Computed example of a mutant assay.
Amino acid sequence: MLIAHDIFAETNPAYCAALLTTFVGAYRSQCDTDPDIVLCYAALPLALSGDLAATFDRTNSRTGLLEWLHRSPVIQIRLAGRVNGSLDIVTEAIRFACFSNLLVVNAEGRLVPGTSSVPKGLTKQLGENTQQTFKHIERLGCWLALAGSTRTVFDMMGLEL
């Protein structure tokens, strides 16, 4: 039996907006600030990358970004290309989230929750791989919040702002 991989569904702006809303919520749960918009450009492609899914095994919200990167150095291989290749996908997801009032970009360039929310129980209706993607982006939200500034996060990942 051949299993098809639906890239179009994984890059759907509504799906990606729900993931980003989860990321923002997890980030805010760990610190008293909102995430810089540029963090989404790193978090979303990392969460969506099926080839990196195994790197999240045996991690939780307390693992931390640096520990995760040290455990799996493969994450940083071609990371800049992965981020650059997903710029349009992330931008469309942010636009969709803002148009849907899931998120708002404030004057400082940070994402804050909007007046709408992702339906509760949404992930329970999704397949196992999709549920895992939501868990991964939630962990990334916690890890990036605890890592420090946006510059620190990008330095840890070997990326430049």
Rank of each mutant, 00 (worst) to 15 (best):
I75T: 03
T33H: 14
A47G: 09
A43F: 09
D32C: 03
K120C: 07
K120A: 13
S149R: 13
A42E: 05
V104H: 14
T130N: 12
S72P: 01
T55R: 05
T63E: 10
F154L: 15
G127Y: 07
Y15D: 03
V83Q: 08
N60C: 10
R71S: 06
N12K: 07
H5S: 09
Q125V: 11
A14M: 13
Q125G: 10
L103Q: 03
E92I: 00
I77C: 04
I75D: 01
L103A: 05
V90C: 11
T150L: 02
I77H: 12
N101T: 04
E10S: 06
I137G: 06
R28M: 10
R139D: 00
R95Q: 00
W68C: 00
V24E: 00
R71W: 00
V24F: 02
T152W: 03
V118R: 05
V90E: 02
T115N: 11
V112K: 02
R82A: 12
S72H: 14
A145R: 10
H5M: 07
G109A: 05
C31A: 14
V38S: 12
N12Q: 10
F8D: 05
L161S: 13
F23S: 11
P113N: 04
L20T: 04
F56H: 12
I89H: 06
R151Q: 14
F23H: 07
T55S: 14
E138H: 10
R139A: 07
L44Q: 13
C40R: 02
D51K: 15
S149G: 15
